[in-house]
Amino acid sequence: MKDQSRKRHLAKTITWRIVGTLDTILLSWLITGNPWTGLKIGLAEVITKMVLYYFHERVWFKINLSKKGIVRESRKRHIAKTFTWRGVGTLDTMLLSWLVTGNPLTGLKIGLSELLTKMILYYLHERVWYRIDFGLKSRAN
């Protein structure tokens, strides 16, 4: 199960990063009015967010195993993961936006604007992945 779960978490990391980066690019462009700034911020976060997301997935996997080694899933778990990931992701976006634009207020605006869009997108991403068995030997119902 260990190797399979790592493959699953890697696949989830990649798919979420695609969705998340596109959202960041669009929001950054809208807030700064400059598509190149949006692109710079979006591309800057690809690596940091993939690393952070992978470790977030590993932590949640380890704290949510039943005694039989079967992953327990629920809407409450997805909501909790959404909020914890959004906290980590927003801080990362704020810092990167500040570094790219040189303006802490712009970093704050971009980070805060992501709160709603990213939480909705992340929750939907979790629900889709919950229905996919890739990387799972068994699932608790």
Rank of each mutant, 00 (worst) to 15 (best):
W60S: 13
G135W: 14
V46W: 09
L26F: 15
Y123G: 06
N64K: 04
W29T: 08
P104D: 09
M94V: 13
E57V: 06
L115D: 04
R127F: 04
F61W: 09
T106M: 13
G42H: 04
I14E: 07
G89V: 02
F61E: 11
L96Y: 06
L121Q: 11
Y122C: 09
L99S: 02
R8T: 08
G69I: 06
W129S: 05
V59D: 10
W98Y: 10
R75Q: 11
I132R: 07
E126G: 03
L43D: 13
M94I: 14
K68I: 03
L112I: 14
T24H: 09
T84K: 02
H125V: 02
F134R: 07
I47K: 08
K7P: 01
L105C: 07
H56T: 07
V88K: 01
F134P: 08
G33Y: 03
L26Q: 09
L65Y: 07
V71I: 10
K49C: 08
Y122I: 03
H9R: 14
K7L: 11
H9P: 03
I25A: 15
T106Y: 02
L116T: 11
S74Q: 06
K40R: 10
T15A: 06
Y54K: 10
A44M: 12
H56R: 00
T48K: 06
R72W: 05
K137D: 15
H125E: 08
Y122Q: 06
F61V: 10
R6P: 00
K40E: 12
K12W: 02
K2G: 15
I31H: 01
L115C: 11
E57F: 00
W129A: 10
T21Y: 01
L112Y: 01
R58F: 12
